[in-house]
Amino acid sequence: MRVEKLNHPVLNRVTYRAYLDGLPVKHVNKFLSHLDKRDFAPNTVKSYAHDLSQYFRYLNKKSLDWKHSDIEVITSFIAFYKHSKADSLSVLPTELGQARSISTINRALASISAFYRYKLNIGELGQSIALEAISTNVSKNPKVKEFLSFASASRPQSVSRELKPFRRAKPVKRKVKTIPEDVQLKLIEFCANSRDRLLICLLLETGMRVGQALQLRHSDIESWDSKLTIFYRLDNSNEVYSKTRTSYEVVITDKWANMYTNYLLNEIGDIESDYVFTKLYRKDGGNRGEPLSYPSVKFLFKRFSNSIGCNITPHMLRHTHATELLRQKVPIEIVSKRLGHSSIETTKNIYEHLTAEDMKNTIFGSKEGIEK
């Protein structure tokens, strides 16, 4: 089974479908179409499609029917998937350890759960699935929402022990990576044109996600009012998307506004495009007004990382901006709103390391001062 990208004929956006031996997999694609109608982001639909394709590849390999999969089958799949290569379903030797991260496994569980919930709710499974395998109480009074309820925050007490293998593992919180000021300057100097420098400075000065920046239109920028608006769009021709569904405004500096004006005068020229960041040079003779894509930005960061011998990613610029604001004692409510987070708790969870680290620096910094 493979996943293919296509343009949705009605919604006018990119979506994804599953195919087996050149033929569409109807039961999977019907679910993916359901996600499209519910206005799920294309990247989310893509993730569901890939997770389900791995699950169905496993079922096909074991000659199992998805309609009769029970808890034991899904448990076996997760154990298999956890230790298989990222690009195949061949199991790695035990000594090589876990090939997939906890977050990837949790996402696969959520995808499978959502798929079965959908099939149960539309009546395509009925009693054919082994609900009795979950618990005796459920088999006497089956409720569709209880099947595979491991993907929900709340679980019926009667199925708690049986669903224990499916409880999401708690991911290890990683400290966010930021970029030192000297490396920031090197990155800006590394840029070969004003477009790339404008992009890098925008990410550093606003904390925008790279997808938000690449979908930016000229009409979104109000230089005279020192602000820009981030809109949620699904019709971007470069297939980048704003993760935040709610539009919000971001304040820009006069320095960046002046850089933008110079970029319009000196680089854009006769290029006709609504997008701010476009391809300026085309050796293949293609359209110069085509919006810049994420692979192009990824390639820029890869070349820069190779030049300094240290891995630098676009998202690290976002973390750097947020960290600098918090260290400057900017209220977390303001930082959260600037980053476009849905709640302050999201911001706290990501940047909670600052409290412990700053306390350590304060304590030991003071001690060093006394000793000197």
Rank of each mutant, 00 (worst) to 15 (best):
97 G>E: 10
325 L>H: 09
261 T>A: 10
123 G>Y: 00
116 Y>T: 00
76 S>A: 15
360 K>G: 03
287 N>V: 08
236 N>T: 06
214 L>C: 07
166 F>Q: 00
319 H>Q: 01
359 M>S: 12
29 N>P: 08
158 S>D: 01
350 I>M: 13
176 V>D: 07
157 Q>E: 11
169 A>K: 08
266 N>Y: 08
256 W>Q: 05
107 R>F: 05
19 Y>L: 12
351 Y>H: 06
309 G>A: 05
202 L>S: 04
98 Q>T: 02
140 K>Q: 14
196 D>W: 08
123 G>C: 04
109 L>V: 09
298 K>N: 13
322 A>I: 06
3 V>R: 08
155 R>Q: 00
57 R>T: 13
43 N>E: 10
314 P>R: 03
214 L>Y: 10
295 P>Y: 14
19 Y>S: 04
201 C>Y: 07
17 R>P: 06
118 Y>A: 09
288 R>Q: 07
139 S>L: 02
139 S>R: 01
352 E>M: 06
29 N>E: 11
90 S>I: 15
333 E>S: 11
241 Y>M: 03
335 V>T: 12
192 A>F: 04
363 I>H: 14
4 E>I: 14
280 L>H: 01
61 K>F: 15
342 S>L: 11
311 N>H: 08
41 A>K: 12
67 K>V: 04
250 V>E: 04
57 R>A: 03
58 Y>G: 00
339 L>N: 07
132 E>I: 10
223 S>Q: 01
237 S>I: 14
227 K>Q: 15
199 L>W: 03
80 F>A: 07
372 K>P: 00
107 R>S: 08
272 E>L: 08
292 L>H: 02
283 K>Y: 15
119 K>F: 01
57 R>L: 06
271 I>W: 06
10 V>N: 09
191 C>E: 13
215 Q>C: 14
359 M>K: 13
89 L>F: 14
171 P>H: 05
213 A>E: 07
16 Y>V: 03
271 I>G: 01
56 F>L: 15
99 A>Y: 07
304 F>H: 04
14 V>I: 10
221 I>L: 07
367 K>V: 15
201 C>M: 11
286 G>N: 06
370 I>P: 04
105 I>D: 11
264 L>M: 14
107 R>L: 00
94 T>D: 12
17 R>T: 06
308 I>L: 11
173 K>P: 05
103 S>R: 11
158 S>W: 01
112 I>Y: 04
141 N>I: 01
84 S>I: 06
230 I>Q: 09
116 Y>D: 04
103 S>W: 11
64 L>D: 10
170 K>A: 07
292 L>V: 03
358 D>Y: 12
334 I>P: 08
316 M>W: 07
140 K>M: 09
